[in-house]
Structure formats: structure tokens, C-alpha cells
Design a protein around this nucleic acid. Structure first.
Lengths: 326, 326
DNA sequence: TTGTAAGCGTTATCAG
DNA sequence: CTGATAACGCTTACAA
């Protein structure tokens, strides 16, 4: 049980040098002789020395750790996004940790993180600005916020929703539904606004109706029931995310109506299961991984003062067989 | 921009008291007069004081942060598990951060974490034991490891795999496949061993064949092709996880064979999409959330010295329609 | 009840 | 090239 904490002081003692020499050697400072350095490194290894993060941070005022703040760990959604962040950060010598819940917010002001990437509406705008005012560097993925220490990296929701609705209209659909996300969701609001705008700018005969959803499968299933109950001809449905589209597939099973034949569905996110559905789901696609890596890159630019700027993540429509012509 | 770091020293100055009095007041120590305490708190609030984590940690040698180490952020799998950990930890006054990648391993020995929950084979047993020897507290979810500072919280893979195979056999299947996970996966090895044992102990006429898989959808699709190509009567397939079962559904689409009719499938994990497949997937179920909360609880017991012990997470078989009688 | 001061493990500034 | 030494911000005996 080596429950002993060895510090540079111990190394200094064993190697017969001063602690500052040890510090220099450990940090590869060229002031130290090759010889002394070798000896010190050897002693360090022998004693199983590990630097103390708290002490280093206290002195250097940096941790080289970035936090990503998510609303919840649940859902298939964020895997690629986080992977993209992590790879980019590691490349630049930073580590990533994922945090969730308002308790963990303290980590930023307390100096445990050099910066944060925020995708969590439970961070209020005011709180974020407070942190930014204190000098903390932030990237936001879920809101627009203007501040010297904050950069936005946002999904092009407007383009995506427009593509989706235009596609349904181009396929000849006159009766259109939009299945929304939860109240207060930035993505939902942006997508919905663009969907509405597309309808308003289109043929005035279009019959457009919004159904309240929640970005989960259950609300997709519920919407399917509703659509089936009032069915009187082919309809186009824009589900504001794929999760709800999956629920809709499920909800139509016990009805006489089929996806791509009676009910024509476009989703958003192009999650990987979309291509495994029968029929394959038409959806709005973008690179989650790229979203993450761009966010990470901008955050580091902000931290290192090398000119960060707002970015937009582009989207495209991927055709499946869930929409047919009418 | 208030890029100023206010410390207890600043508060002391503004309040006209000493720094230790500030520290006592901030920590609710009853030595301080109600009156001085009020004043100090007021000044702290006014100056927007936030404690410095590094300094506190350096002194107290604890962070009250637990790390969960995952192999990858990708995949739908870990959401509930992490949620379970988080809730349990928060309840006990700890925070959770999620780490991935070998770079982040340093956080444990460097003292940024009070303990770790490990589900990542890139932590070698040797490394874990090294940390444990240094006095760090660990919970492992993916291996058996005996040490005073390590407790295991393991899924009952053996029971699950046995249930799955026995179920297929009970439904009258004689031709059986097992679709494995990747080499070196603890779950895969345990499930496979139990599957084999069940066959060996069963009717000697059973025809049992193992197909190499990877725990991803693609390997399920590949296995489906293989099974279809050699099909000569109903078969039972135990997919060692649900992800591969989804791939198998997909791979059978362009063949004359149907799930639950020709190819009878049992999965493992009972992921939420399983009930949305057509036909619903029969799978081995367990509570991820419970797994997480039990792991968290045992870790805290270990840290606080209140008697931690190894735990097993029980599983059960949930029937869908992906297996029929033969 | 409040203040003084030592020390946690590092880094970094100066002298030697 | 190497060694004292003073911070970093906080906690906590111990003194007053």
C-alpha cells in the first residue's frame, strides 16, 4: 500500500538537488544538465511520482481541461458530437470532460475548466454572460448570445426545415403537418419558424397544421394516432426530429395507413437508425462530428486569443422512401 | 470586464476582518458572530466571490468529483447508466464527470477525482491496480479484479445468456447460432461462455454455431446474409447485443426469410428501440439506471469507508415477437 | 469571537 | 547551470 504522496520535494531529497531543479527537469527546461536531468527523471520514475493537479492549477491558472455541458446523458444523440469535440481537443493538448446538471456548473467559475461548450438550456443566458464577464471562454450550441468571450456554433436549422418543407411541397403534398419539439427548445423554435415561413411563402392553398411534440418517440406515436384519426387523403409530415419520426412509424402500425404511401414523413438529424427503418426515413442530415470539432476549435481559438468567430453547421436532405409523390 | 479574481483576501479587506474569519464565515463555522458573518457574506456576494477549486483541493485533498471512464461516447447505450450514477452521486454531495480516452486517465492519479467508475478496457488491470495501490478508490463494471480499493458491480451476463439460449431451445429450436461481440470484450466472453454451456448441457442433437460479430449493426447485417445463404430450416439466433439484432433485421429484408418465422432472434440489453422494431425484439433486460446507481453507491461507500461490497445486476428475458415456436 | 501564521505542491523570479 | 524563496488561495491549529 504505497498510500504515500510523493512530491517534487521528495524527489529533490532523494536526488540531492533542490526542488526548483526538479521542477525544471520535470518540465524539460533546457537549463538543467542532461546528466542531472536524467538522474532526476530516474528518481521520479522510481518513486512513482505523479504531479499534483491542484497545485499546478493554483499556480498556472489553467487546467487544460474543457467541459461540455449537456442537459442529459440520455438519448442516442450526442455520441458523435462529443467524439468530434474530444478528437479536436486532444489534438490541441486539451482534455474533455462531460458534465450534466446544474450542480456541475460550479466547475467553470471555480477554475476547474479552461472553457466550456454549452448545449443545455438550464444554463440561463444571464448565467453564461456572468461567466463570460469573469473572463471565462464559452462556446454555445443552443442559442444566440453576443459577447467577447462567447462564440456561437449553430446548426443551420432554418435551412434544414426549409429543405424539409420544400421537399414535401415539391412532391405534391397539400396537406402538411409539422410535429414540434418541446417549448423553449432553440432547435424546435428555429425549425418551426422556418417551416411556417416556407408554407406562408408557398401556394396559398396549402393546408398546414402544427402538432405539439416533445422530441421523444412517445409524442411521435401520439401524433400518428391523431393524424390517422383525421385522415382523409395523403399528408406530408415534417417531424422536427427523427426520434419522433420513429414513434410515428410505430403509431401507424395498427392503422390502415402506411408511411410513404398515405403518410409521408421527413425527419431531422438523420440518426443512424433512420436507414434501418422500413421504409428508410427521409431526413435532414449534418455531421455531428464536424459540429463538435468546429465547436472545439473555436473554443481553443478563443482561449488562445487567435481570433475565434461564429460558425454555422450546414445541413442537407437525405432521401429515403418515407416520402412519395402524390 | 470584471476579469478580476476575487479571493477571500479581497473580502477580508473590504469587510475589515482577517482572512480566517472570512473562511470561517464562508464555511458556516459557528465561531463567527452572526453579525460579522452577515457582513462577510454580503461583501462576498457583492464582490461576486467564487471559491477557487484548486486551492481548496490542494488543502483539503478532496474534490468531491467522481469520474466515469467510458471507451467511447458513441452509441445509445450508456445514457441511463450515467443518469443513474449522477443521481445517486448528487444525492450524496458528489458531482460526476464523464471521461473518455487514455489521455484523461491522468485525472485520477493527479488528484482531480475522488474516485472513478471504470467501463473501459483500455484501462489495463495493471494500471487500475497501480492506482488502487496509491489509495484511489475504484468501481469496475467490466472485469473481475480483487483489491481492497476496488469493488466490482457486474451485470449478470451468465444468467442473461442462459435465459436467452434456454428460451430458444424451449421454443423447439435445434439449429442455433450465437452472434458474438468483439474479441476481448468482457460482456461478450461471459455471454458466449454461458451460451456454450447451455448448449452443452442440453440435447446432444442441438446444432450450434458461432458467428463472429462486433456489437455493431453492420456485423448483424453481415451475419444475416450468412445465415440466409446457408438456410435450410428454422434457426434460432442469440445476438449478444441488440444493436446486432437490429442489423440482422435489416440484413434479412432482401431475403425470403422473416424474423420470428424463419429466423428467430433474441437480443441482449433491451434497448428502447427494441420495442419499436417490427416484430418486437425479444431481449435480455436489466435496469441500466440501477446499474449506475449501485455502482455510484458502492464507490461512495468505498470512499467514505462504510463497507462496500461486490454487487451483481440481475437480468430477465422480455418477450417480443421475434421468436416463434418451431 | 477574531487574528496570526503555517503549509498544501507547484512554478517562476532572482541570485549565486 | 543550480538553489533559495516568494507566491497561488485556502484551511486550520493555535494565540490573543
Amino acid at each position: 500500500m504505497g498510500n504515500v504522496v510523493v512530491s517534487i520535494k521528495d524527489i529533490a531529497k532523494h536526488a540531492g538537488v533542490s526542488i526548483s531543479t526538479v521542477s525544471y527537469a520535470l518540465n524539460g527546461n533546457s537549463k538543467v544538465t542532461e546528466e542531472t536531468s536524467k538522474k532526476i527523471l530516474a528518481v521520479a520514475k522510481e518513486l512513482n511520482y505523479v504531479p499534483n493537479a491542484a497545485a499546478r492549477t493554483l499556480k498556472k491558472r489553467e487546467t487544460r481541461i474543457i467541459g461540455a455541458f449537456l442537459t442529459t446523458f440520455e438519448g442516442a444523440f450526442y455520441g458523435e458530437l462529443l467524439q468530434g469535440m474530444k478528437e479536436e481537443l486532444n489534438k490541441r493538448g486539451y482534455d474533455l470532460v462531460i458534465c450534466s446538471g446544474t450542480q456541475s456548473h460550479r466547475m467553470l467559475p471555480e477554475g476547474m475548466l479552461d472553457g466550456a461548450i454549452v448545449l443545455d438550456k438550464r444554463f440561463s443566458d444571464e448565467e453564461l454572460i456572468l461567466h463570460a464577464n469573469r473572463g471565462h471562454k464559452l462556446v454555445v450550441l443552443d442559442r444566440e448570445l453576443s459577447h467577447n468571450n462567447i462564440v456561437q456554433v449553430l446548426l443551420d436549422n432554418k435551412a434544414g426545415a426549409t429543405f424539409a418543407m420544400e421537399y414535401l411541397i415539391r412532391q405534391g403534398h397539400k396537406k402538411l403537418y409539422a410535429l414540434t419539439g418541446p417549448e423553449g427548445s432553440f432547435d424546435s423554435e428555429q425549425r418551426l419558424a422556418a417551416a411556417r415561413q416556407t408554407v406562408e411563402r408557398g401556394d396559398p392553398e396549402l393546408d398546414y397544421c402544427e402538432l405539439p411534440g416533445n422530441f421523444d418517440k412517445a409524442s411521435g406515436t401520439a401524433a400518428a394516432k391523431r393524424i390517422a384519426s383525421e385522415y382523409d387523403g395523403p399528408v406530408g409530415v415534417f417531424c422536427l426530429n427523427d426520434e419522433m419520426a420513429i414513434g410515428m412509424y410505430h403509431g401507424l402500425k395498427d392503422t390502415p395507413y402506411h408511411i410513404g404511401e398515405h403518410v409521408h414523413v421527413v425527419g431531422f438529424d438523420h440518426i443512424d437508425i433512420a436507414d434501418f427503418l422500413q421504409p428508410r426515413l427521409t431526413s435532414i442530415d449534418y455531421s455531428e462530428r464536424r459540429w463538435g470539432s468546429v465547436a472545439a476549435e473555436q473554443l481553443i481559438r478563443l482561449i488562445e486569443g487567435s481570433g475565434a468567430e461564429h460558425e454555422r453547421i450546414y445541413v442537407s436532405l437525405v432521401e429515403g422512401e418515407s416520402v412519395g409523390q402524390v
